[in-house]
């Protein structure tokens, strides 16, 4: 027994060390700094202990709370769309049709496109005066005038950003779900059909349980990606219009590099991590209690 423990640790240790050193240590430092009024560049002043002041500031600051809201909106919308489109396309690709292998390959293309390219591409497509989306929709007579797709101060702009992000990312969900679908034995379908189950019943009783493991993976990954989203917003809207697309990560970045308040930025990022943790712990509990089996 002792020897196994020794081997177990020996195999585990290198990875643990790397992760602890490169993420763990800086993160503990971040927690520590969040309790200080710490200027980013410490030439002129020294850090001053402020306790939880930075956290209190975060919770009473309407801009930052707006950022929390935008982040949650981005995540929820992007998770729903990813899963909805992922499941639908997977079910479509599980049907028999001409050129199926080709389409299955095609579907993976957007996922392989680098995020930077995707962001720039969609910003270009959405452009209010010469964007391809405007041109397409007017030429098809769906809209009369060119529209400002990234110009709405409500949730409209964020929705457009989510659509651009989803276009790139849902294929991963598709291939996960598709693989899940392929593992469901055909005999089961035949069996329930004999029972006279309708389409909806089949979907709930067989299809969904069959792909649930894949969906849970997609859920966890998309939640993490969504709650810490930065790149696509930074590149597409730089937070505008009127701060309607600033996310938590954006505020962390702004505090650190714009306002040079490292303590405040650290507090913001701790809040971000906490939110992600809450979600993921919930999922993990869920996965364990349901005893998922593939």
């Amino acid at each position: 027994m002792k020897r196994t423990t020794y081997t177990a640790w020996k195999f585990l240790l290198p990875a643990m060390l790397v992760v602890a050193g490169i993420v763990g240590f800086p993160f503990i430092k971040t927690i520590y700094i969040s309790l200080f009024n710490a200027p980013l560049i410490a030439y002129t002043q020294k850090a001053e202990w402020v306790g939880f002041k930075n956290f209190i500031y975060a919770f009473i600051n309407p801009s930052f709370m707006g950022g929390v809201f935008h982040t949650l909106y981005f995540s929820l919308l992007s998770i729903s769309l990813n899963i909805l489109l992922g499941v639908l396309t997977a079910m479509l690709l599980n049907q028999k049709f001409f050129g199926r292998a080709f389409v299955r390959t095609l579907v993976i293309l957007p996922w392989a496109l680098p995020t930077v390219v995707n962001a720039v591409l969609w910003r270009w497509i959405y452009n209010p005066t010469y964007g391809a989306l405007n041109a397409l929709l007017t030429q098809l007579h769906i809209i009369q005038n060119y529209r400002d797709w990234l110009g709405s101060a409500g949730l409209g702009t964020m929705t457009m950003v989510v659509l651009a992000d989803t276009w790139k990312n849902y294929p991963l969900v598709t291939i996960l779900v598709l693989a899940g679908l392929q593992m469901i034995p055909k005999e089961i379908y035949e069996a329930v059909k004999v029972d006279g189950a309708n389409w909806w019943n089949i979907f709930w009783r067989i299809t969904l349980p069959g792909v649930r493991p894949a969906l849970l993976v997609a859920l966890v990954l998309k939640t993490i990606d969504g709650l810490r989203v930065f790149d696509i917003v930074y590149l597409m809207t730089s937070g505008g219009p009127a701060s309607a697309t600033k996310t938590i990560s954006f505020y962390v970045y702004q505090e650190a590099f714009g306002f040079l308040r490292l303590g405040q930025a650290s507090a913001f990022s701790i809040i971000n991590v906490t939110i992600i943790f809450v979600f993921v712990i919930f999922y993990i509990k869920f996965i364990r209690s349901e005893g998922v089996s593939g």
Binding site: K29, F230, N272
Partner: peptide, 20 residues
């Protein structure tokens, strides 16, 4: 420990950027 490791994966890059 797997969950501990996964927890580090959830870290937003901005949270550790400067220390790094």
């Amino acid at each position: 420990l797997l969950y501990v490791m996964l927890a580090t994966y959830m870290m937003p890059p901005v949270a550790i950027l400067l220390s790094l």
